[in-house]
Every structure is written in structure tokens, then in C-alpha cells.
Nucleic acid binder design. Structure first.
Ligand SMILES: [Zn+2]
Ligand SMILES: [Zn+2]
Length: 742
DNA sequence: AGCACGCCGACT
DNA sequence: GTCGGCGTGCTC
């Protein structure tokens, strides 16, 4: 019997080890193992057990099993294996995404000074300096601490010399913090007020129908996927609550996935009021130790309901009966950084492995989900009425290219005449306005008005972002920071002008036009560094203390403002700034979502103005009449004609290399040896749109196939052709079902 | 990817 | 001679 162990490494694959008798009980899939690797030991995750192994070299035995219970159970291991195969990712990177960061860590070394006396005079100056540092602590120093004091450079070599001279002893350890803490942190408790008596609201007929359908499926205890399509304000959350209660009543557990941006204290407080001490919260803001506490609470079964963002997909459960994916269309469920898995798609898979019910909720479902619903793969539940009975607000498209509307607009002005007039009427009536601006396309920058150059990052092919407060240029992709230059780096002239962030410019313009109004701004910069700033600004707007709120994505989701009567979208096409095949879908989702902030209460007439240069665009006209079906018809027709997903499947294979010439030569060589796959279309390899990232030049190759099997097959063949051609400096990455094409 | 080894040029 | 940058080989 061999243990196949996932270890972070080059082949990304699995390494086989024999299992010593002493470890036979403990060495099961999902357990953490200490294994001999090369000259030393590494930690890894036992992926599977096998009777045979095809490695022909010497096979070593497992050194140890870490912790007393395996962190991952069989159910999670099955999911991890599926993800590794589906997304063509190294098992070790999936393991790293699924385990608390604590558990898979690197070797730690403690250095202990042995000599009673002073170091011998024969030591060279560099060794002497190190020895003097080590001599001060009798019980030793951690290597990382030493590195902080005397520098990383050459430390390994120096320590080796001191050890060879018998002056120090080096102890290695891989012990993770497997033990639970004495006083584990409890995120849900931290955030919620006293337990309140909760009176569940009356359901509308539509809600009741949806709840009935879900309850029936949950009670049946079989895999059943649902698409819950409900207009903004239709009360999807209450439907989720009821479904969760049903799952709990069946003795099963529930997982709620929400977009990272929605996972606010206000949201978790709502769930806490309903589910009390059975709730655990997973979010990226938790420290590793706190995250580990929540994770353990879930694994022990103490938590029955878990709410979290993308990575909560891997939360451990004993008996998972329900998964809810809220805002299932949201792009944050698939990320390119790290492991490119789609949490919504894998939630479906996990539900099927658990005979669980899965609910995808959205006002504006992804075309993939709608297509599945239309073909009977998902049960389609619809909520067409707002829970409050309020009408959806009328949406007007305002043509920004219309000279009449441009009247009174200055060069960089963002507000056209129509919106301006609507704002002043709203203000005169004592009502509130909300202006939405997409962060993308309005980033603050340092531009040369003589040559048009914008100061860009030396490591990445992007313009640097100007941070006003710190007066520094920063890169969004890498950690590059620079002082703003005085002269243009391109033409050498004094032509540089500061172009503030869109929201700040918008705020200034609003203040200029409406000097008597109370204006507030909410964007990433405005809330940075103060946790309650977001809540405070939202409260001020809710209470009516603020007349006009200006903001980005942050204000588009979920919030409920009763005094709000005007919503303005500054530039609808900003959602289409990335020109990929999902651009129209994003624009429709954006306008629908922002419009949903207006007129949520009965008897209130909200108004939504959407500024655009293309008022004829079908995504905007459909959004303007709140017709998701009309949009879906047109968008699915376009996708079908162009053979885009959901009518085909795609993959990207990315290549990157620090050296441009080496990358170019590799790509040229690959082009000559590009294998063909029947039924799959291959485009490229060509330079990626984002041609340089963190000092690495980038290329990509796009694969389109009729189904996922074709795509997998083509990816397999291309990797088989590319890997032998790639030197150690060239990195290859695979992205199945890509969301972004940069 | 780590990690260790060893070549070589810079420095003193 | 010492120091450290950097290319190279190996890993069940
Ligand atoms: Zn210039
Ligand atoms: Zn950069």
C-alpha cells in the first residue's frame, strides 16, 4: 500500500510513499503527513491510497502523521480531487486553498548556540557578527527572527559553516497548531447584539411557492439544484432562511456563499439573529488563527450554518444538506489569483456528492445558469414581485452624446443636464439621490497632457494609481510604490496633471453644482483604515443627514434606503470596459442592481437615470424595462450565434516568463508544435492583453470546444506539447471556464 | 517551488 | 581568503 501525498512542488503531482506499520491506522486520505523529500522533510496532504505506484526510483516511507484527526474528511477529499481534475490544478494548490493556512506550513528552524565561551578568533568577520548575535540567547533563536536582524543574504551558508564548526545546533520542526485554542474566537458572537426575539415576516405567495418547492426537495434528501431568480427586493433572503431552517430541522447543515463584498457585519448580524450560536462565519478579514477557530467550530459540528465568501466552499461539514449561492452571477466566485475554481459551479458538485439541495439565487442570473434552468438541469423558481409590493422604479436611459444633454458640461464633467436637473428637483423636494460610478475606467492617475502618456508600473503593463493622501503612485497588481515624478517620463516635459479618482471628481462636481447639499462619498479609499466608516456613512444616508451619496460597487449591493428617490448611473458602458463576451451581461447586471436601490418601499416613486453613449444597446434597453427575459433571449441568441458559453466551453492556457526573449522563443516554438484536437478551436498563443504582470511577460492561448471533454482533451495535449519546451523560468497555468481574459 | 551546492567575480 | 550573486540539479 502506498500513500499518494500532495506536496507543493514543480510536478504539482502526487508523490508516493510506503506506509510504516506504526502509521497504518493514521495514514488515511485527508491526513497531514510529514514526508522525506530530497535532503529534508516536507509537510503534505495524503490525497489517496494506492496498491501500486509507477515511480521507478527509491520509494521512502512516511516520516509521521501530524495532528490526531485528519483535517479533511472523505467527503471533502472527494470534492478536492474533483476540483483538481476539472480545473487541471496541482493537488497541492487545491489543498492549500482548502486547509486553514496554519496547517500546511514550511519548515521552521531554531538555532542554538553551543559554545560556553566566546566564539573563536579564527572566525571571519561575517560569521563573527552572526555568532555574536546568536550567543546572546541561550535557548536559541528562530531562523526567521535571525533573518530579520542580520539579513537573509547568505544566512543558510553561514549557519552551515557554524554548524560544521560545532558551534551551533539547528533544530527543525514542522509542528502545526493542530490543537484547539483555550478560548477560541467566535466571529458571529463578536458581531451580533443580544439575541433578539425574532418574528419571521409573512411570505408572499411567490415566496411561499419557492419555499414549498425547496422544503420538499430538502425533506426528500436527494441532490436537487435550483435557480431562484427574483427581482431586487423580492425577498430571496427570507426564502434562504426558511430553507436553512428546514435543513436544520432535518438534522443537516447548511452552507451560504455570498460575494466577498456583501459579507458585511450587517449581513452576518441578520443571520445571527436567526440562527444564534449555530452560525459560523468565514471571511478573508479574519486572522489565520481566528479563521482556524471558525473552521474547527464547523468541523466539530458545533456550527450548523456557515456563511462565507468563495473559500467557504471548503468548510468542513458532517452532514451538509443545503448550499445557497447568493448573487450566483457575481464574478468574485471565480478568481484568477491563486486557484481558479468557480465556487458556484463547485457548490453544485459538492451538493451532488452530499445528496444536498443547492440554490443559486440572483436577480440577474448568469447565462450559464439560465441555460441550465431552461434545459431542465435546474428547477427554475421565480419571484417577480417585490416583497413590499412596491413597483420597480422606471429607468430612463440618457444619451451622453446628445448635445442637448451635454449643455453646461465642461471638459471632464461627469453629470449631464438631465441628471443634473433631476438631482436638483430631488433636492428641492427634500429627497435623496445616489450616484453610482464604476471603479473601473475611472482610476486616479498621473497623465501628461502634452504627450498623453500615463505613468505606468515598471513591473506590470498598467498605469499606476495615484493615491492622493500619501501622494504616491501605486500599482494595483504588484506592490510597486513610487513618488510622483516632476517631469513626464516619456517626453521629459512639465506636462503631468493629476487625474483624481472618478468618485472624488464626481463628489467635487456635485458639491460645486449643489453647494448647499450634504454630499458623502463611499469607495474603497473612503472606508480604508476605519472599520465603522462604511456603516456610519450608510447610517447617515439612511437617517437623511446626507442628501447625495456618491460611490462605487460598495453602494450597489443589498443596501436599503427608504428616503432614496433618485439613482444615477454615471457611465453604463464602464461595465463593458473589458471587451469580452460577457460585457453585455455585466452591463445588464450592473444597471439592474444599482436601479434596485431606488423606490423599494410601497407608494414611493423612485427614478433611475442611466447615462450612456449607447442608449440603443440591448443590455441597457432591456434593463430599462426590467425585462430579464428579453435580455436573456437576446444575449443567449448572441452567445449561440458566436458559439460562446453556455453554447461552448472555454479554457485559457497562460505562459509567463521574466525574460521577454526567452518567452518569445518558447511561444514561437510552441506555435510550430501546436497539437490539433478535433472539435476544439485553438487561438494563439499570443501576448496577453495584460502583457506584463509583476515583472513577468505574459502570453495566452484560448481554447474553445463544444463540450468540456473536448476542452480537457485539448488542454491535455497542449500541456503535453508545452511542458517539454518550457525551461525552468517559464511558468504555465491553466484556467478552465475563464471569467477574465486579461 | 524549495533547497543545497559549487563556480566565479568583486573586494580587501 | 572571504563574501555573496547566480546558474544548476534533484526531489517519491
Ligand atoms: Zn509627456
Ligand atoms: Zn505593478
Amino acid at each position: 500500500m502506498y500513500a499518494q501525498v500532495a506536496i507543493k512542488g514543480p510536478y504539482g503531482g502526487l508523490f508516493s510513499y510506503t506506509i510504516p506499520d506504526a502509521l497504518r491506522e493514521a495514514a488515511i486520505p485527508g491526513a497531514l503527513a510529514l514526508v522525506p523529500m530530497g535532503r529534508g522533510n516536507r509537510t503534505g496532504l495524503i490525497w489517496s491510497l494506492a496498491d501500486t505506484c509507477d515511480y521507478t526510483g527509491e520509494i521512502k516511507p512516511l516520516a509521521d502523521i501530524l495532528g490526531d484527526t485528519p483535517p479533511l474528511n472523505a467527503e471533502l477529499m472527494r470534492l478536492l480531487d474533483y476540483i483538481a481534475r476539472y480545473y487541471r490544478q496541482a493537488p497541492a494548490s487545491i489543498a492549500a486553498a482548502a486547509l486553514p493556512a496554519h496547517l500546511l506550513h514550511d519548515r521552521k528552524r531554531r538555532v542554538i548556540w553551543l559554545g560556553e565561551t566566546a566564539p573563536p578568533d579564527s572566525l571571519s568577520p561575517a560569521l563573527r557578527a552572526l555568532a555574536d548575535h546568536l550567543r546572546k540567547r541561550k535557548n536559541g533563536l528562530m531562523e526567521s527572527t535571525i533573518a530579520q536582524h542580520v539579513g537573509r543574504a547568505g544566512l543558510d551558508r553561514k549557519l552551515k559553516l557554524l554548524r560544521d564548526d560545532g558551534l551551533i545546533r539547528i533544530e527543525e520542526s514542522w509542528d502545526a497548531r493542530h490543537k484547539a485554542r483555550e478560548n477560541p474566537h467566535w466571529e458571529a458572537e463578536e458581531q451580533a447584539e443580544v439575541r433578539q426575539l425574532h418574528e419571521p415576516p409573512q411570505l408572499t405567495d411567490e415566496q411561499q411557492e419557492a419555499v414549498d418547492a425547496l422544503n420538499e426537495a430538502i425533506t426528500a434528501g436527494r441532490f436537487a439544484p435550483f435557480l431562484l431568480q427574483g427581482v431586487t427586493g423580492s425577498g430571496k433572503t427570507e426564502v434562504y432562511f426558511r430553507a436553512v431552517e428546514t435543513a436544520l430541522a432535518q438534522g443537516r447543515q447548511a452552507l451560504l456563499l455570498v460575494p466577498e463584498i456583501s459579507l458585511t457585519p450587517q449581513l452576518t448580524a441578520r443571520y445571527r439573529v436567526r440562527f444564534h450560536e449555530t452560525l459560523a462565519v468565514f471571511h478573508s478579514g479574519l486572522t489565520p488563527a481566528r479563521r482556524h477557530d471558525e473552521w474547527r467550530r464547523a468541523r466539530s459540528g458545533q456550527a450548523r450554518v456557515i456563511i462565507g465568501a468563495r473559500s467557504a466552499l471548503f468548510a468542513p461539514f458532517a452532514d451538509l444538506g443545503l448550499i445557497v449561492v447568493d448573487e450566483e452571477h457575481d464574478g468574485s466566485y471565480k478568481q484568477e489569483e491563486g486557484v481558479p475554481y468557480h465556487a458556484r459551479d463547485m457548490a453544485i458538485v459538492r451538493a451532488s456528492f452530499n445528496q444536498a439541495v443547492v440554490v443559486l439565487g440572483s436577480a440577474t442570473p448568469a447565462m450559464e445558469s439560465l441555460h441550465n434552468a431552461q434545459h431542465g438541469k435546474y428547477h427554475h423558481l421565480r419571484l417577480t414581485q417585490r416583497a413590499t409590493g412596491a413597483d420597480l422604479p422606471p429607468i430612463e436611459l440618457v444619451d451622453l452624446s446628445d448635445p442637448q444633454n451635454r449643455e453646461g458640461m465642461r471638459a471632464h464633467s461627469l453629470i449631464g443636464k438631465t441628471l443634473r436637473e433631476a438631482m436638483s428637483e430631488t433636492l428641492a423636494a427634500g429627497k435623496q439621490s445616489l450616484l453610482f460610478l464604476n471603479r473601473r475606467g475611472f482610476a486616479p492617475a498621473l497623465l501628461c497632457n502634452l504627450c498623453g502618456h500615463s505613468v505606468s508600473c515598471p513591473n506590470c503593463a498598467v498605469a499606476l494609481t495615484l493615491h492622493k493622501g500619501r501622494n504616491q503612485l501605486m500599482c494595483h497588481y504588484c506592490d510597486h510604490v513610487a513618488d510622483p515624478p516632476d517631469v513626464c517620463p516619456e517626453c521629459g516635459q512639465l506636462g503631468l496633471i493629476r487625474f483624481g479618482p472618478g468618485t472624488e471628481r464626481l463628489e467635487e462636481e456635485v458639491k460645486q453644482r449643489f453647494p448647499d447639499a450634504n454630499v458623502a462619498r463611499l469607495d474603497r479609499d473612503a472606508v480604508k483604515g476605519s472599520a465603522d466608516r462604511l456603516a456610519k456613512t450608510l447610517d447617515a444616508f439612511r437617517s437623511g443627514a446626507v442628501d447625495i451619496l456618491v460611490g462605487t460597487q460598495m453602494i450597489a449591493k443589498g443596501h436599503h434606503f427608504s428616503g432614496l428617490s433618485l439613482v444615477g448611473v454615471i457611465a453604463a458602458e464602464s461595465a463593458m470596459s473589458q471587451p469580452d463576451f460577457r460585457a453585455a451581461e455585466r452591463a445588464f447586471q450592473l444597471v439592474t442592481q444599482v436601479a434596485g436601490r431606488a423606490g423599494r418601499e410601497r407608494g414611493q416613486t423612485g427614478r433611475v437615470l442611466v447615462q450612456t453613449f449607447d442608449p440603443q444597446h440591448y443590455a441597457l434597453t432591456a434593463a430599462a424595462c426590467h425585462d430579464a427575459d428579453l435580455f436573456a433571449d437576446q444575449e443567449l441568441r448572441f452567445r449561440a450565434e458566436a458559439e460562446y458559453p453556455p453554447f461552448s466551453r472555454m479554457a485559457l492556457v497562460r505562459f509567463s516568463c521574466e525574460d521577454l526573449g526567452e518567452g518569445d522563443r518558447f511561444v514561437a516554438e510552441l506555435r510550430r508544435n501546436l497539437p490539433h484536437t478535433e472539435g476544439a478551436l485553438v487561438l494563439g498563443p499570443a501576448p496577453a492583453p495584460l502583457s506584463k504582470l509583476r515583472g513577468r511577460h505574459r502570453w495566452q492561448l484560448m481554447i474553445k470546444g463544444a463540450d468540456i471533454r473536448m476542452v480537457h482533451q485539448a488542454v491535455g495535449r497542449i500541456l503535453a506539447a508545452a511542458e517539454p519546451l518550457a525551461g525552468r523560468n517559464l511558468r504555465i497555468g491553466v484556467d478552465i471556464d475563464p471569467q477574465a481574459f486579461v
